[in-house]
Design a protein around this nucleic acid. Structure first.
Lengths: 112, 112
DNA sequence: TCTATATTCAACATATCGGTTGATCAAGGG
DNA sequence: CCCTTGATCAACCGATATGTTGAATATAGA
């Protein structure tokens, strides 16, 4: 289950901001409204509202309705898509390193 | 082994660009110079050079020297730090979902 | 219905980003 | 000692990001 390039752009860029990462951390403990998410930050509700829109556009959160509130919910599958992308290249690199180590080992044994 | 907030900013932001992600993909298959990394892209070498600096500042790559070349190498540990950050919150969310499912199950059984 | 609360929209200022061109620096090879 | 090659620095430009304030919208509740 992979996502397109533009969606990866939006998701990684969304995580590149400390306010939005703090919101992710908060939402991992349960849904929260705009006001609740805004509480820890010294910025306006409007600014928070836009951070939330960035996270939603990136697919990292979804929003429901509860009267006049719009609770936000984390989307674990979206986070998983990001770790999958990263891991593909990290694991390839680590495999390559191990092959190099093994080769070096072999060469050293030959020399003896 | 965690990294500070500003470093996470830089690393996630660095991954939020398709050119830089393509460079990461390329480097997972082995070291490459600025010219080699520039080859697939219709942009100037200077622009590529700056993308590389962004990746280096983010700690995602390191650079060695080979004569006048400056080969780039992927740093798997830096990638691992990012997946760890993401996974912490994804796993917490998934655990919470499972607790909610279990609770719902219990309630439904009570009703019968 | 009137008012308060939750959220968003619009317009604006400022900063950063990603690209360009042109100049510069550093190392190698004839 | 030149000249080429690899890479970077500096100045500039247009687009986008992040914050502000003020107005608008929508639902709740007396």
């Amino acid at each position: 289950m992979s996502v397109d390039d533009a969606q990866l752009d939006r998701a990684f860029t969304a995580l590149g901001d400390p306010v939005r990462r703090a919101m992710i951390a908060r939402l991992s403990r349960g849904p929260a409204t705009v006001n609740e998410l805004a509480e820890p930050f010294p910025i306006t509700k409007q600014a928070v509202s836009r951070h939330i829109q960035v996270l939603e556009t990136a697919g990292l959160i979804t929003r429901t309705r509860d009267g006049q509130r719009r609770p936000c919910h984390l989307v674990p599958a979206a986070l998983e898509a990001l770790t999958s992308w990263i891991d593909e290249y990290r694991l390839e690199t680590e495999r390559r390193f191990r092959r190099m180590d093994a080769l070096l080992q072999t060469v050293q044994e030959q020399e003896q």
